[in-house]
């Protein structure tokens, strides 16, 4: 039976989606919808802005104002939307390549401005739509169709990058930790400035197969075994954290939001 979440927030006539069997992106999309539902956001005011790639096809399936933009540029389009009309609730759906490679410049500057946008990075460690090329989040040594001998590049940590650039909220969860993911997206939306949630996904079709990671279930189990909640991590000795990665709310430091600051200029000129 179709869940109410799907009925209320998906464009049912646009389903089924294009994602492969075992892809984690459906779980993330559900978490975004669940967060919107729990926050009771006005659908007419929500804009879902996406870039290009597997992740970014999500916008077409969702019943909001939806903008499927050019590769890497979703945050720049979203900046224009938010600045033009700060009453809009802007959620950007992007991928690891979309936001940290071709769109890396827009990511660091959206973070620096602390503009009221919530970005959800569907991070599957690979360029899926083009058939499995290595991305800035493909682990060093892992393979892609353009890294047949193993990836030499070092990895971007999307949350650390965004925090260093000025984001006021960063968090990470995986598609195994679906409830945590929903909570973190909710908190990201509630944060007034720029929020980013690194949503670690699985791509059994390309990344998994190329790197012999097993099927989708095996990949989910790997996420379960290697993710450590940031609150638990503080109590663990360093050797227990080797080879693991952190999930949970990684950084939250409320700062003045861009469009509110700009509004003050308009108001001061009006008074003057």
């Amino acid at each position: 039976m179709t869940s109410n979440l799907v009925k209320n927030y998906f464009r049912m006539d646009k389903l089924p989606h294009i994602w492969c069997p075992g892809c984690g992106h459906g779980i993330i999309t559900r978490a975004v919808m669940k967060a919107i539902d729990e926050l009771k956001l006005d659908k007419d005011k929500v804009c879902i802005v996406s870039g290009i790639g597997c992740s970014s096809r999500a916008s077409g399936y969702l019943d909001f104002n939806t903008l499927h933009t050019t590769h890497g540029r979703a945050l720049a389009y979203a900046t224009g939307l938010k600045h033009a009309n700060p009453d809009l609730e802007i959620i950007v759906i992007t991928g690891d390549g979309d936001c940290s490679a071709i769109g890396g410049n827009h990511l660091i500057h959206a973070a620096r401005r602390n503009i009221g946008i919530t970005a959800v990075a569907y991070n599957n460690n690979i360029y899926g739509m083009t058939g499995g090329q290595y991305s800035p989040t493909t682990p060093t040594g892992d393979k892609g169709t353009t890294a047949p001998y193993g990836n030499v590049d070092k990895v971007f940590d999307i949350c650390t990058l965004a925090q260093a650039a000025g984001a006021s909220y960063t968090a990470r969860a995986t598609v195994y930790h679906a409830q945590l993911l929903t909570k973190l997206i909710k908190n990201g939306i509630l944060n007034k400035g720029f929020s980013i949630i690194d949503a670690v996904s699985v791509c059994p079709t390309y990344y998994g197969r190329k790197n012999k990671k097993g099927d989708a279930v095996k990949m989910m189990e790997w996420l379960k075994d290697h993710a450590v909640n940031v609150s638990a991590a503080t109590k663990l000795p360093e050797e227990k954290l080797a080879g693991k990665f952190l999930i949970g709310e990684l950084y939250h430091n409320p700062q003045p939001e861009y469009t509110e600051e700009y509004k003050k200029i308009i108001e001061s000129l009006r008074r003057g």
């Binding site: 802005v49 903008l67 933009t69 050019t70 540029r73 720049a76 389009y77 979203a78 900046t79 224009g80 939307l81 938010k82 600045h83 033009a84 009309n85 809009l88 827009h106």
Partner: peptide, 10 residues
């Protein structure tokens, strides 16, 4: 990109 976003916002 921002110009297009703003135009879409009216």
């Amino acid at each position: 990109a921002a110009v297009i976003g703003a135009s879409l916002a009216g």
